[in-house]
């Protein structure tokens, strides 16, 4: 395996704000890499930097074996970049958008027809090929945008929150496509606010205030979370929340809608104890159970720790 992206201290400043701050990233060819982090953490800036859309303030990077600072134009034929907001031509039809990018990427004429047909089928847009992009649903627009970045079969895909604002069914379809591409050997870097999506990546990088704070496989990241998870569905959410924080053995309390997620030192031992404590204090709960930890909990726990560190400073 060879590195398709290597960055050393990659930094981007906006005035005094370090949007991306000393990023050291190595991504191997064939990875499906997820970039997560709260809003404003620098995910979009990172992807734009890697796509050659921004000047580098400090540091250096190599993308697809070209230097990012001096050869950014040489990188472009080798990547497919999909911006966060819809950025296709709304007044052009699906097919016209595809053909436009095929021309810009110099797709060979003899391969064009076959590739367009394949992408249309792939994205499920064949029957909408003459519809104007403006009149497509949000999910279809995203799939069209992805198809346009795939028209030249780039070895590297940079996708900036491709599933934001898309319904769950389309989201699933979209990820099926990504997985398929990943299987075919395309390197994919995708930023996402959804933790279930991060779980599907081969490696995940968590960004916080411009820095890459953790970069590992989902399994290892989950393992970093101390303790076991107990899910509680209380009837009086507020009282339950207050009580839970005072219970012995509870390391962390997270709220998730009407449910409480409690991290405890020993799940098997504490489940009964906690249930008892709730009953004793007259807080009725409709159910309580041990659950496997997911990226979501690990992520929130990590961010909370980072926030505490920052405010302590």
């Amino acid at each position: 395996m060879t590195a398709i992206i290597e960055t050393q201290g990659l930094t981007r400043l906006y005035k005094d704000n370090r949007a991306v701050d000393g990023l050291d990233l190595d991504i191997q060819s064939g990875e499906l890499f997820g970039l997560v982090g709260p809003d404003g953490a620098g995910k979009t800036t990172t992807l734009r930097l890697l796509a050659g859309l921004l000047f580098i303030s400090e540091g250096s990077a190599t993308v697809a074996e070209f230097d990012l600072a001096s050869q950014s134009e040489a990188i472009k034929p080798n990547i497919g970049y999909m911006a966060q907001q819809f950025s296709l031509y709304a007044e052009l039809s699906v097919l016209e958008n595809l053909l436009f990018f095929a021309d810009i990427y110099d797709v060979k004429k003899d391969k064009l027809q076959e590739r367009v047909d394949r992408l249309l089928t792939f994205a499920g847009l064949t029957e909408f090929k003459d519809r104007r992009a403006a009149h497509l649903s949000g999910g279809m627009q995203k799939k069209l945008a992805l198809s346009c970045t795939l028209i030249h079969q780039p070895p590297l895909l940079l996708l900036d929150e491709p599933t934001t604002g898309v319904d769950p069914v389309s989201r699933r379809e979209f990820w099926n496509i990504l997985t398929e591409l990943h299987m075919e050997g395309t390197t994919i870097i995708v930023s996402t606010p959804y933790m279930d999506e991060a779980d599907r990546c081969s490696r995940v990088g968590l960004m916080y205030e411009g820095k890459l704070v953790i970069c590992d496989t989902p399994k290892n990241i989950r393992a970093q979370l101390k303790g076991d998870l107990i899910e509680v569905f209380p009837d009086d959410w507020q009282a339950a929340h207050q009580l839970a924080q005072t219970l012995p053995g509870v390391l962390e309390v997270q709220t998730y809608g009407e449910t409480l997620h409690l991290f405890v030192d020993d799940g098997a031992k504490q489940l009964k104890a906690i249930e008892k404590s709730f009953n004793k204090n007259g807080i009725s709960i409709s159910s309580i159970r041990a659950a496997p930890t997911r990226m979501e909990e690990a992520f929130i726990s990590l961010i909370r720790r980072l926030e505490d560190e920052t405010s302590a400073k």
Partner: peptide, 8 residues
């Protein structure tokens, strides 16, 4: 333009 800039 962002999309266009990412092309060659």
């Amino acid at each position: 333009l962002e999309q266009l800039m990412a092309t060659p």
